[in-house]
Amino acid sequence: MEIILKTLFSSKEEELYILDCLSYLMMLMALATFLVLLFQNVPYGRYTSRKYGFPVNVKVAWFIQELPAFLVPLSLILWASPVKINVLPNQLLLGMYFCHYFQRSLIYPFLIRGGKPTPFASFALAFVFCIYNGYLQVRYLSHYADYPEGWVSHPCFITGSCLWLLGWITNLHSDHILRNLRRPGETGYKIPKGGVFEYVSGANFLGEMVEWAGFALAAQSIHSFAFAFFTFIVLSRRAIAHHEWYLEKFEDYPKSRKALIPFVF
């Protein structure tokens, strides 16, 4: 792995420049995605359409598309001589990243109950993004991120870490509520209740957005900010679409419940 990377980049400065460029490109992609999502919902789940390619089993799709976000970074740690791996702030930030994607790639897909197939286009784009972002986040943290002494006690790191943990727990709990909406043998959609769903329709999305916003605050890099920004753009639109769908589908849907931000929006 290290030999391959040295072949691609002649110097550390060159690779760091490329990582920065990839971050800015991710933000541009987020803005382009925002414009597209103004006119089209993300084609998955209840919004699935065959015009976006042949269907892929939802469990298979989730497992394969998320796996690179875990395996690509893991290979960078094991075989690419990570010079920052013994630095505490870097270790903790890498731990946050791997904690999320271990659950998302190796546990979450096998907990899915039912679920509509994923169109191939959505599956392929998610697969490519996980490779892209996995390399970007972990290569920077394991090789280049340089934090001042005592950074783990800095208010930004402490606040960001707490937000990451809050978001991660919210995301896990919200996914648990969604999985258990139907009893065995039941089909169709139901109104989610409990937890943060009492306040917003997109509780699972809000959790993940808070998670990566906290990660970006703790990491203080353009790379982590780009990821948090991209996550916000995509998941906020999903939350709004879900909220509108629930209001149209269920006459008794709680009118006080917001789309994404409790009591606000």
Rank of each mutant, 00 (worst) to 15 (best):
P55N: 00
W62H: 01
G53P: 07
V72S: 08
I77L: 14
W79M: 12
S75C: 14
N57T: 05
K84I: 02
N57P: 02
S75P: 12
L93Y: 10
P68Q: 01
F63Q: 06
L74I: 00
L93I: 11
V87S: 13
K59C: 01
L76H: 03
V83P: 03
S75D: 05
P55W: 05
V56H: 14
Q65F: 08
I64H: 02
S75W: 03
L67I: 00
I85P: 10
V72I: 09
P82F: 06
W79L: 12
N90G: 06
F63N: 04
L88A: 11
Q65I: 00
P73H: 11
L92F: 09
Q65L: 00
G53S: 10
S75T: 12
L71S: 03
L76A: 04
V72C: 06
V72H: 06
V56E: 12
A69H: 04
P55A: 02
Q91Y: 15
V56R: 14
A80S: 11
L93S: 07
N57W: 08
V56G: 03
Q65G: 04
P73M: 01
N57L: 05
V58T: 14
F70D: 07
L93V: 10
L92S: 01
V87G: 08
F63H: 09
A69S: 12
A69W: 07
P73Q: 08
F54S: 09
L67D: 14
Q91I: 15
K59R: 15
Q65W: 09
V58W: 07
K84V: 05
F70C: 00
P89D: 05
L76E: 06
V56M: 10
N57K: 13
A80D: 13
A61T: 14
G53T: 12
I85L: 14
K59T: 08
V87D: 10
V83I: 06
N57S: 11
Q91T: 15
I77S: 02
F70N: 02
K84E: 11
V56I: 15
L74R: 02
L78R: 03
L93C: 04
I85Q: 10
N90R: 13
P82I: 02
